[in-house]
């Protein structure tokens, strides 16, 4: 049972500003139903003064996601665009009297929706956080976005990065990368740089390494989640596999494939690609 504050409970049971503004000046769509929470924020802006005159939300998610969404609308109505952009996820959590640590990602989602809605209003197509390299495949999070949240909230542990962004909360394979990112940010040294290229392998060495890795590391992981993978062929640098069980039907099949590719690149050779037979 989560320990929610009275404010969270109140805004969850009786949220303010539910709905969608027709002909909104800005729309922010973040999250997805697959990930377990999603928020659509619409805002009305008075052009002359750049003031947010109205805001409404629609949220799929848990109590703290709904309360955070309601909080962001309360916080931004009446503010200018510039004032609104100064709001942090801590401000949202603070407005709610605090959130359980594990639920901080709900406040981060609220803040992201706000950024996206304002970017949409300004006619910017892509938010800054969408650029960069993907760190967490499960939730599609880039290093740029993680850096932003880590710095803004002074996060020191990978566990907190998961609490605030969900990164690493799925399959967990990116947790070492998150650790490296944290070290890099707080020590000021570049660690998450290109890995040193591995020495060239013979084809037979390569195939046996791939076989070994799939058998000993990748299959047990997938099997425990109800999936399976089989190595079909290695054609030059292209590794052909077939996904079985859950994996083959899963909406995350692409992600699974990318994870396998990442693992093979890391452990065997950087030039490998993975495709489905």
């Amino acid at each position: 049972m989560w320990e929610y504050t009275d404010k969270v409970r109140e805004l969850f049971l009786h949220p303010h500003n539910v709905g969608e503004i027709k002909g909104a000046d800005g729309t922010g769509d973040v999250g997805s139903i697959v990930c377990g929470d999603a928020l659509k924020l619409t805002i009305k802006v008075d052009k002359a003064s750049e003031t947010i005159t109205d805001a409404k939300f629609q949220t799929f998610g848990c109590a703290s996601a709904i309360a955070s969404s309601s909080a962001i609308t309360d916080l931004i109505i009446g503010k200018t665009i510039d004032e609104a952009l100064k709001l942090t996820n801590e401000d949202i959590a603070g407005y709610l009297g605090g959130l359980p640590r594990e639920k901080m990602h709900c406040s981060v989602m609220g803040r992201e929706a706000l950024e996206a809605a304002i970017a949409d209003y300004r006619g910017e197509t892509k938010a800054e956080s969408d650029e960069g390299t993907i760190i967490c495949q499960c939730y599609g999070l880039t290093d740029t976005k993680l850096r932003h949240v880590i710095k803004e909230n002074s996060l020191r542990t990978a566990e907190d990065v998961t609490n605030f962004t969900k990164a690493g909360g799925g399959c967990g394979t990116c947790l070492p990368d998150i650790e490296k990112l944290l070290t890099e940010i707080w020590s000021g040294k570049a660690i998450l740089t290109e890995r040193t290229p591995l020495k060239k392998l013979t084809n037979i060495q390569k195939i046996s390494m791939i076989q070994d890795l799939i058998e000993k590391e990748i299959r047990p992981l997938l099997q425990s989640d109800g999936g399976d993978v089989e190595l079909i062929d290695v054609d030059g640098t292209n590794v052909v596999v077939s996904l079985r069980g859950m994996c083959s039907e899963c909406v995350m099949a692409d992600v699974t494939l990318k994870n396998i590719e990442k693992k093979l690149k890391e452990m065997v050779s950087n030039d490998l690609t993975v495709t489905i037979s």
Binding site: I33, V34, G36, E102, T162, K166, G169, G170, D225, G226, M246, E249, C250, V251, M252
Partner: peptide, 17 residues
């Protein structure tokens, strides 16, 4: 308590949604 939904329903192929 984690970010992962039920392993039982996932094993059954119930869509995440």
């Amino acid at each position: 308590g984690s970010l992962e939904p039920s392993h039982v329903l996932r094993a059954m192929g119930v869509p995440f949604t």
